[in-house]
Design a protein around this nucleic acid. Sequence first.
DNA 1: CATGGACCTGATCAC
DNA 2: CACAGCAGGTCCATA
Length: 318
Amino acid sequence: MSLTPSANSSSEIPDSLKVIKLSSGHDARDPVIFNIESEEPLNLDITLSSGQTFRWEKEDPDWWGGIIKGNRVFLRQVEINKSAIRLECKLSPSVKQTNLLENYFNLNKNYTEIYSAFEGDPILKLAALKYRGLRLLAQDPWEMLISFILSSASNIPRIRGNIKRMCEEFGDKKFDVFGEFHSFPSSSVLASASIDDFKSLGFGFRASYVWETSLKIAEDPGFLSKIASLPYIEAKDELCKLSGVGEKIADCVLLFGFDRLESFPVDTWIKKIVERYYFDGRAIPVKKLAEFGREQFGDYAGVAQQYLFEYARGLESE
DNA sequence: CATGGACCTGATCAC
DNA sequence: CACAGCAGGTCCATA
């Protein structure tokens, strides 16, 4: 099976998406509040706790707080009906970016069509039903790079803690109508810190990886934009030259930071589930599994990976 | 090229 | 409630 992307892969926002402004923030001290309604499947809880992103926090019972392109954002999902979602959004009035959320949630991508492509695969079909509305996010490449270096041989609570403390320690302190928050630290700031600084944040053996990679990026600021312009294989090769970046993390950075849906990161969960359902339980080397995923799932390999990952973890916790 | 052990730390789970 | 073994991989050293 080879899955082909939809013709609608431009960055244009489709007609099925409506932005409804509720408060224009006449007073600069008040948040701007608006709704986004879309026919695209989106499940905020599943998406924001899915392990592709590490800084979102659910503060109130149903309000998520996070940072997109340096802007604090609060989101809540309200059910409309089966064929549409509504996102309630609160932003600082200082935010001038247009389509901030539409881009972040990739609402121009047609997931209904992707689900149709998954129909022919029994496991993906189940996963798409169970985790309907799980979407890949368009996140910042630099943030993805450091976050996933920190993810190696770790676990989600620890990764989140590492990143949170790093941002509090080294990120710029910023203020908006909601109060104080910290940005994700830049490469030059991290490069001027020390490996011991990172060890005291709990990075462990990843401390030197983070420092060396930060230095490299600080010295070559065009590195990541060059990655964006390279074909998949070459982009991955370049990323793998960075300290602490192997094939798996390079694939994560390409998938979550560069929108390369053809990448298929293979971690222990993916290894487990792909061996079980596609190789009759036989042990297969990780490298082979990554090739298999890209061949098998084609241009939607990354989306398939994300659903298989959730499905594998769901099986474990049942 | 494939395989195997070391690497930090701490959330988790079996006594 | 204390404790050992393991975790969302990478790197380096050997065949």
